[in-house]
Design a protein around this nucleic acid. Structure first.
Length: 206
DNA sequence: AAGCGGATCGTCT
DNA sequence: GACGATCCGCTTG
């Protein structure tokens, strides 16, 4: 199967805000549609290249599996909002809620390709900007690069023009998408729910 | 190149 | 009281 060449627009400045209805769908559908979109915070912009889908009732690996709590409430709310959780006593992970209000579901951002604001990302990560590959490749790393914390961002609306944290579409067309099992989980570890842009060097390492 | 353990704490049993 | 949707540095080969 030939690798279709992705179309890269000249400018991402005119990228349009992704509307709420985009997220009003099953997590695996939203996950695939998110590949190639842009995560934007202030001067920082990065392309989404690796994501994982987390379902509700039927998914033992999902944070929403055991029911609604204070921690995971955003997953049960309206689509298009940020679910941020603290993990391993040290890192944060960023998700976007999907499915209609009342139904749980989300997509975890696992890796981004930096586009603008690399200096700011490197500073937030505490690494030299020359280490581009380490800036946003990994769910903990990308949160650190974008300054994402639970206190600051949990519940944030990705679809609002007023929002500090947005997801935008610059017309980038994804090439081939690879599907694999999710990383770092023990329950339902074989389910194919990780989606990556084939051949993208910013996809996280195994 | 690959494998192992330490760091560190909110959340749920 | 145990365990993570992780990362990094140090060890060994």
């Amino acid at each position: 199967m030939p690798l279709s060449k992705p179309r890269v627009p000249k400018s991402t400045r005119k990228a349009v805000l992704v509307p709420r209805k985009f997220y009003l769908d099953a997590p695996d559908q939203v996950a695939q549609k998110l590949l190639g979109k842009l995560l934007v915070r202030g001067e920082m912009t990065a392309r989404i290249v690796e994501v994982e889908a987390y379902f509700g009732e039927a998914d033992p690996a999902s944070h929403s599996f055991a029911g609604k709590t204070a921690r995971n409430a955003v997953l049960f709310g309206p689509p298009g909002h940020a679910y941020v959780y603290f993990i391993y006593g040290m890192y944060f992970c960023l998700n976007v809620s999907c499915e209609p209000d009342g139904l749980p579901g989300g997509v975890l951002f696992r890796a981004l390709e930096p586009v603008y604001g690399l200096e700011a990302m490197a500073k937030a990560r505490g690494v030299p900007v020359s280490k581009v590959a380490a800036l946003t490749s990994g769910p903990g790393r990308l949160c650190q690069a974008f300054g994402v914390t639970r206190e600051r961002d949990n519940g944030a609306d990705f679809t609002s023009p007023k929002s500090d944290l947005q997801i935008r579409d610059d017309g980038f067309v994804a090439g081939q998408i690879l599907v694999t099992p999710r990383i770092g989980i023990t329950k339902d570890a074989d389910r194919p729910a990780r989606f990556v842009l084939a051949g993208n060097p910013f996809v996280s390492k195994r």
